[in-house]
Design a protein around this nucleic acid. Structure first.
Lengths: 356, 356
DNA sequence: CTGAAAGCGCTTACAG
DNA sequence: CTGAAAGCGCTTACAG
């Protein structure tokens, strides 16, 4: 015999799904119930209590779809993230969601991959979100098109991280400046020969970084072509620890090995550090390594990892402001592009160039 | 003079926000447009094309609120996470969202902290989500109440991680078994004296772990009170690297120091390893350390960190099944509690008990 | 293909 | 406080 349906579950509480039924249950007029639900004045305390008790008893919740049809704002914001595996992206998402919530907004969160993009945005639009945020890096052409579409519809939006979308409200780290600071730091330590770990490719963010490297080297009278080396073509591209380890392995075999390494992110840097150390190299005795993102883990490696802090707090505060400003007034008189200055955090993984 | 409003933005595309307006724009009847939008048969290709072109031109999206009022299902699932800073919780969230999406569901994601709980759930209900998932650990009394409320309303839901909510569909790691495996491993290496790092307190998950430690020790003829030691009372409770470092500092001062340490998570374990190593202890020469969660970072420490893998893939697959089964049929004949078996991954941080 | 109509669950004047 | 009514944007028979 099948086990009987739990009886405690169905304590004869009617399942109520409309104000009509609910009003009948409470024994009041639909209009009155509606007024209580919306906290309108001029009601007897007794009536209010009665309705509230019934709410608790039945678990009745007014249908949001009817509310919004009647014109109530949705107080919804759509957030697109490139993925939920990149810690800085998740941090930004968490912070943005939290700040928006403080302003009364709920978030619809979606991971936007290659082919789901258009669908996700349509879903956001059909849900009548009041704004959309993009966090991370997306296909440039697609993002440009989406942003243009949203602008045409006067739908507030903000792009966080990805620079270069024309006309789009954007908050982005000054990646060129970040790399300039890293190079200045390393050149100051005597380094003249740099390995780039994962910093190659056509992505806008990467190009910005390379531009920063170039400018900084030029300012020191050095040529980027002569001073930097990348072995990214030797391994299938990834962005994790293992990729750094593979690159270290390849660089270790070079006779004219660079003395300083600039990694795309902390994971690659730590993987490389690990790889070099296991091959007998001392960090920073034999070579220096820098990461990017300044995650907590940078404190936990031996030595600690010198890294660039993205200033996520500042970034998200700027993004929230941009979004709220757009929501409040359709007039776009404020600057649309906000550049966030990075902060280089120096730790033990960078040191003087070895003599000889 | 204020900068003029960008003219490219307003290319005289009317902003359309209802099928009525849209039908007028296309020059077709509202009914016809509706049929195209819903892919109904018996329409001329020419008509379909005409509507689709107009959709692209205007960016018109049917109002989801009207759709769902008319009875169309929302295909929405609400997901509550304890926070977005705990990597395993985020991994589960990412995986669950991805699997639900493959089944056609969009996710409403909310971080549930102490006082927002009730509000978030009401919001989910008002949005008529078809199911709710809880990821992580919440206040037991509150979660019990919410689950009971949802059950009363026959709303499918699943609790991921937190065991012990009566009658609630639950998927949880067998934490007791995990600790039993860890203890067996360490006892096999000769250890008889264990330090617990962050594994204390009244949280159900922690209690389960301690039960596992107890059982395993007892099976070896050892007494938990005599063999284990916790210094959690010496420092304000946290769950990050730094907390592990502080604990290592305290343990290092003990004369009768344990030779093996079991940490609440990988971060605490790594922080402790770091702390011990910086005080001159060798891992695993002088002492062994184990983590929990088997994050990527476990491969990157020196030595690698022995850790318990939560089997997130399996966990989320089970959770998705539980959710879909509930959605499909209101009958709850399937077992409601799914225990996931952990997998101990042994690395270099655990070794034989030092002699003497 | 078109057009008029009903109805989903709400809010909001309006008249009692 | 109550009750009847209009209307938000849609879909879906129904009659042309």
């Amino acid at each position: 015999m099948p086990s009987p349906r739990k009886t405690t579950k169905t304590t004869a509480i009617p399942r109520i799904s409309s104000t009509t039924e609910f009003a009948r249950y409470v024994g009041l007029a639909r209009t009155t119930v509606s007024r209580v639900l919306n906290g309108q004045p001029g009601l007897k305390q007794k009536t209010i209590d009665r309705v509230q008790r019934a709410m608790a008893e039945t678990g009745f919740t007014p249908n949001a779809y009817a509310l919004h049809l009647k014109g109530k704002r949705t107080a919804l914001v759509g957030l697109c993230v490139e993925n939920l595996l990149t810690p800085p992206a998740v941090s930004k998402l968490a912070e943005l969601q939290s700040q928006l919530r403080q302003h009364g907004y709920s978030s619809l969160i979606e991971v936007l991959d290659r082919d789901s993009g258009q669908k996700v945005i349509r879903h956001f639009l059909s849900m009548r979100v009041e704004a959309i945020g993009f966090i991370g890096h997306f296909d440039e052409a697609e993002l440009t098109r989406w942003s243009a579409d949203l602008s045409r519809q006067d739908l507030p939006h903000v792009i966080i991280d990805q620079a270069g979308i024309p006309g789009a409200p954007t908050v982005t780290l000054d990646r060129a400046k970040a790399m300039t600071e890293v190079i200045n730091h390393l050149v100051g330590l005597g380094h003249r020969n740099f390995g780039l770990l994962g910093v190659s490719g056509t992505q806008r963010g990467t190009q910005d970084r390379i531009r920063g490297v170039d400018a900084a080297l030029a300012a020191h009278g050095l040529q980027i072509a002569a001073c930097t080396r990348s072995l990214d073509h030797l391994h299938p591209r990834r962005t994790d620890f293992e990729y750094g380890r593979l690159l270290a392995q390849s660089f270790a075999q070079l006779a004219d090995r660079p003395t300083a390494y600039l990694a795309l992110n902390d994971e690659i840097a730590i993987g490389a550090m690990h790889g070099f150390q296991h091959r007998g190299f001392s960090v920073p005795g034999d070579l220096s390594i820098t990461g990017f993102n300044n995650q907590d883990i940078c404190e936990m490696t031996t030595p600690g990892l010198t890294s660039v802090d993205q200033q996520i707090g500042q970034t998200i505060r700027a993004a929230t402001e941009l979004l709220l400003a757009q929501i409040r007034s359709a007039t776009g008189r404020k600057p649309l592009l906000r550049m966030i200055a990075p902060d280089l955090v120096v730790r033990g993984s960078t040191g003087a160039k070895p003599v000889g």
